[in-house]
Each structure stands twice: as C-alpha cells, then as structure tokens.
Design a protein around this nucleic acid. Structure first.
Length: 477
RNA sequence: GUGGCCAUUGUAUAAUGGUUAUUACUUCGGUUUGUGGUACCGACAAUACGGGUUCAAUUCCCGUUGGCCACCCCA
C-alpha cells in the first residue's frame, strides 16, 4: 500500500508532473501519466463529503450537556412548585397563527419566520415563539372548561431566521410559563417571580425592567400624541427612526441612537396616558413585587416587539457587570390575544426565558471560576467507582455484576473497549475515581472481587454476593 | 437585513510565494505476562470551499460558506 497522500498534495504533484512532462523528454511522459492516473483514482477515493450544522444551529455536546440538564432540572422544579403544568405543542404550526398574533410589521414575522409550503400546499412555519401556540391550544382544546386560570409551563426549541450572534441562534431554546384565564395583577407578579427565582436558583442575579403599555385604547391615544411629538422633532431623528414614525412609532422609544435618545427623553411617556384602571393595575403589580422583594426598574421606554401585549410588560437583565446588555427573557400580559385568535375574551399573561443565553452565562461563570482556581469549592466531592475486568470470562461476569448494580440504582463507570488492566486503571485515574473494582480470572474462580482504594493503594477482597452493599456504602460517602 | 474583524488536525497554536506544514494537549497503540497518577517511544489528524494572479498559492486578490462583534431585532 502506498502512503496516504492528502488531496492537496496530489493536486500539487499532479500539476508539477504535468509541467515536467511538457518540458521533459517524450519517453518519460507515459510513465508520468500512469502515475498521475493512479493519483487521480486515489484522490477520488479519498475525497470526503462532509456535513455540518446549518447556520445558526449547533450541537449540544457532553460538557455543555450537563449544564443543560441542570437548567432543565431547575426550570422544572421552580415552575411545578408554583403550580404550573408541563405541556408540549408541535414545532410546526400554521403560519397564519403567528402572523395573526404577533402581527405584521414586526421583524419576527416579516423577516425571521421559517415559512414554507408542505406537500399539501399548506403554509406552515417553524414556531418562532410559544405563546401563540399555547393560546391556540387553549382554544382548540376547550381549556376554558378547566378550572381557571390554566397555568402551563414548557420548554422547547423556537426558530427565527436571524443573523447569529453570541447567545443568539436560529434554533434556540426557551422556557416559559403562561397563565391563561386570570385578570388579576397577582398573576403578573407571580410570573415575574417564577422567572426571577428560576434565574436566581441558577445562580444568576437579575433586575426586572418593567413598564405598562396600557390597553389597546390607551395605546392608541398615546400613539397619536407620540407621533405628533415625533413629527415636530423629525429633523433631529435618525433616518431609521424617521421611517418608523408611521410604521411602528413605539419602537423608536428603545432606539439606541444618540440623537434619538435626546429626543426620546423629552417625549411624552406612556405612563401618563394610561387610563385610571390601567394605572391602578400597574401600581398594584409593583406593590406585589415590593412585597415579595423582587428588584425592579421602571423603564418607560420598554415596549415589546410583539403586538399582542397589553398593560404589563417586563424584561430580565443580568445584574453582572459584564453582560448587562443581554436580555435573558421577557414577557407580559396579553388580554386580547385569545379573543383575537377566535376564542372567548380571556385575560392572560406569560413570560419566556432564553435558555441559550442562560447556559452561556453559567458557562462563562464556570470558566471564570476555573481560571481563578476556585472551582474546587463548587465541586462536591463524591466517591466515583470504576469497574475493571480482565479476560473473557471476567468480561461476561462483569456485565452481569454491572446489571445487578444498575438494578440497585448504583452506577459504576466502566470501559469494555480496553482489555489490559493497565489501560483500564489509566481511565479510572483520569475520571478521578476513588475506588476501582477489579474482576479477573482469579476472582471469577472464587466468586470474589478486588476493591482498590485509589488514594491509598490498599486492596481488599470482597465476596461477589456482598458487592452491592459494599458499593452502596462507598457511594454514600 | 447592514457594517467591521476573522478562518491552519478534535482543541489550542507556529510558519512560509518553492521539496516532507511546527509544537503542545487530546485520542489510539506500545515500553513482556493482572494494577493508575509520572517518564519514554510510536501512530492518527489540518491550511473551510470555489475561482483568479503566478513557473509555483496554505500565503496575494475575488467570490461563496461559516464564526465572532456592532447595528437591527429579540430570547
């Protein structure tokens, strides 16, 4: 067999040899072309087709996988402790559902939706968010006949065809809660509390930015006022914002353009245009938040990008010095959505957290601790056991013993792909196991098993029948 | 969608218009037979893709794709 040659090298040789053939004598030409042909064949054989993830999509790999598992665990514990029930809905939905609820003119719908026709010619889309799906489900499944309110939580992947960036992907994961069928301000406060405590349990301190955008009527009145104000200051606005005066004037409020900010500071604030009821509602929500000691900031420029929100809107920001700018999640009340989608008038509110961003923050924190050498404090020292086997008979016996242990709920590490004891000991050491069980020919014969303490090197012989209890004791320490 | 920066083995890196592309880690195998932490030896593995300039491109130029950052938006 000839030595493996990379395609590039072949190409090079190919080119080189072609040139030499032209220059050099004719008789050499044939020989060279034979060689070239051989190279071409090999080259074809070796050309590998590779596949990779689509843009903005990624794999979650072992190291991060553990963080994700922990996040899911916390998310589940917190939401169920508040009385929310787990639900799932299809990832594929009718495109109209989202166009109707989120609204034309929003970026999510106009630019970012994965919409296509399926084989029946139906316009379908990959869900860009969950609220509309749950509203649809509430109506479709007659949930108004369940005890109200219906409190649901979910997690799953959403899709938006956006430009990828740190903490932003085209397929991303959200966790969220929705309370449908309750109009009281407690609901708003409770939802904020769930999100806040979830983040807190994950070790992320946050500040809640909160605002009220009133009822649809309040907003209409306000927008008239706002637009007339903005028109008067038109020349001071950025190009982008000028365009938005007619299309979506509320969005100008959270522009980051310096010129715009100056104009916005003087602008009429939506709070002043709320009806007395809306105002009362909002202050009550704030009172509840004070009561349960959740830190919040009133943010009069907070308006959300989705059309269905009414009254309370909020967003969560990381309180760490570093990553202030990333919104970890947000939500609000959407009292007219259910009706808009064809249901009875039903009040509702909810929130969603971006899990990708949460994992990103946790990962960064972990890396920082690791660099500072402080991770030792976080690691809980627990006994780890490795099971090594030696020889064919022991190999089979080992499988059986592992099965016994597994049935008892005891997990020991093992690796059947290594045959030498030395190699297995190396692995045991690498994963940081505290004890190694060794099963060889000798042990198989007298129904025993060798237990080695990896720190002290002391070994003792244990009866195979007693191994479960023995392992359990070790793992308890 | 707009703009800026970037692309070398699984990871992190070095170098170069010219023979075999550096180094470390990881992975795999070994340093006699059943014992890890070290040490030694060896193997696998890369110039993202496509075009152009050139005698010669991994290097220079263009395009594509992808990544990061900012804007936009959002979670």
């Amino acid at each position: 067999m000839p030595k493996k040659i990379s395609p590039k090298a072949v190409k090079k040789t190919l080119k080189d040899s072609k040139k030499t053939t032209i220059k050099k004598v004719n008789s050499k030409k044939k020989v060279v072309s034979k060689v070239v042909n051989k190279f071409i064949i090999e080259n074809k054989k070796e050309k590998k087709i590779t596949y990779n993830t689509l843009r903005g999509m990624r794999d979650i790999l072992p190291r991060n996988g553990e963080i994700w598992q922990r996040v899911y665990e916390v998310v589940k514990n917190v939401s169920t402790s508040y009385g929310f029930s787990y639900v799932e809905t299809p990832i594929l939905e009718q495109a109209g559902l989202f166009i109707r609820s989120i609204g034309r003119g929003t970026d999510v719908i106009d630019k970012e939706m994965y919409v296509f026709e399926d084989k029946d010619g139906e316009k379908v889309c990959l869900r860009p968010e969950m609220t509309a799906s749950l509203a649809r489900s509430y109506i479709e499944n007659g949930m108004q006949n369940m005890p109200q309110p219906v409190k649901m939580w979910y997690h799953g992947q959403m899709f938006r065809h956006d430009r990828p960036q740190a903490g932003r992907f085209r397929q991303f994961y959200q966790f969220g809660c929705e309370t449908i069928g309750d109009s009281g301000p407690v609901t708003d406060a409770e939802l904020i509390s769930v999100a806040y405590n979830t983040l807190k349990d994950l070790g992320i301190e946050t500040v809640v930015h909160i605002n009220s955008i009133g009822t649809l009527q309040d907003r209409e009145n306000y927008i008239v006022e706002l637009v007339s104000y903005l028109r008067s200051k038109r020349s001071y606005l950025s190009e982008e914002s000028k365009k938005r005066i007619n299309k979506n004037p509320l969005r100008i409020l959270d522009s980051k353009d310096e010129q715009d900010i100056a104009v916005i500071e003087e602008a009429p604030q939506i709070i002043d245009w709320l009806s007395p009821e809306s105002k009362k509602f909002f202050t009550t929500v704030l009172e509840y938040l004070d009561e349960i000691e959740i830190p919040y900031v009133l943010n009069p420029t907070l308006v959300r990008g989705l059309d269905y929100y009414t009254n309370t809107v909020f967003e969560f920001f990381c309180d760490d010095e570093e990553m202030v700018n990333i919104a970890l999640g947000g939500g609000g009340r959407y009292d007219s959505l259910i009706e808009q989608l064809g249901g009875q008038p039903t009040p509702a509110a909810g929130f969603a957290l971006g899990l990708d961003r949460i994992v990103l923050i946790i990962k960064n924190k972990q890396d920082m601790l690791e660099r500072a050498g402080l991770l030792g404090l976080e690691k809980i020292k627990k006994n780890k056991i490795f099971f090594a086997q030696l020889g064919e008979k022991a190999n089979k016996k080992a499988l059986y013993i592992l099965e016994l242990l597994r049935r008892e709920g005891l997990f020991v590490y093992h690796n059947f792909s290594k045959s030498s004891l030395k190699a297995q000991m190396e692995i045991a050491d690498k994963i940081g196991s505290t004890h190694t069980l060794i099963l060889g020919q000798k042990e198989v014969q007298d129904d025993s098993i060798l237990v080695r303490n990896m720190d002290s090197g002391i070994q003792e012989v244990v009866d195979q029948k007693k191994i479960c209890n023995f392992v359990r004791k070790l793992l308890q320490n």
